[in-house]
Amino acid sequence: MSKKFFVGAMLLSLGASAFDAHADMMAPVFSYSISSGGLTVNGSASDFGSVRQLAPTEWFFQGNTNALAGTSLSWAYLVDPDPFITGTFSVTNETASAREYVINFSLPISPSIEASTMSGQVAGTLTDANGSGSALLTSIAGGNVYTALADELFVYSLMSGANHWVSNPFGTTSFSGGSFGQGTTLAGPLVNDTIGIRFAFTLSAGDSASFSSIFVVNPVPAPGVFALAVVTGLIGYGRRRRSS
């Protein structure tokens, strides 16, 4: 009995310390970058907004910037270094000509992941914000609009060869950009440092687009952890048999 009590107390203590460790975690440096016309602006997603801890391992970032001339960008993202990235950004091309944009969101993870499953999804809207009678959003050179990244390397992509348009003044169109790893198990990447999502597209003059997206990496316990769990189960079974 005293052994059980001791083990229970140990586990409680471990659990509490683990929660405390999460609660004391600093907000991750969730960063963004936006490039267009040979210029790049980047920084922490909290530089032009705020960050708030919502749960022991979850932070909410929101903000907006006009730092890239002729472009307005705003975001609202929930991130977890465990890890996942989910949220929405909207961008408006305030110039008089179509522009190519590459927008990155990157999240440092902890701990590193040796084996994983993953899932992701993207959907969005395009609006003729200047009432010109048309709006156009396309992928750049037939590439992908959404690319999931691990350690800044390609993991999965969506919206290949995208071509969405609005043909009435002040009109809006919405699009579902597809998903992966939802409802099925899809092997994920090894991740040492970061996960991220990259968006690359061309947006017509004076118009707005928004993207809501998700990228989740679920760590899969290593074989050693499985073995430990099996051994623990066997020990417990043996002890119950002996006591009965």
Binding site: T88, P169, S174
Partner: peptide
């Protein structure tokens, strides 16, 4: 005239 479009994310 006008329009609306949107997305819903369940986090």
């Amino acid at each position: 005239s006008g329009s609306i479009g949107g997305q819903y994310v369940n986090g």
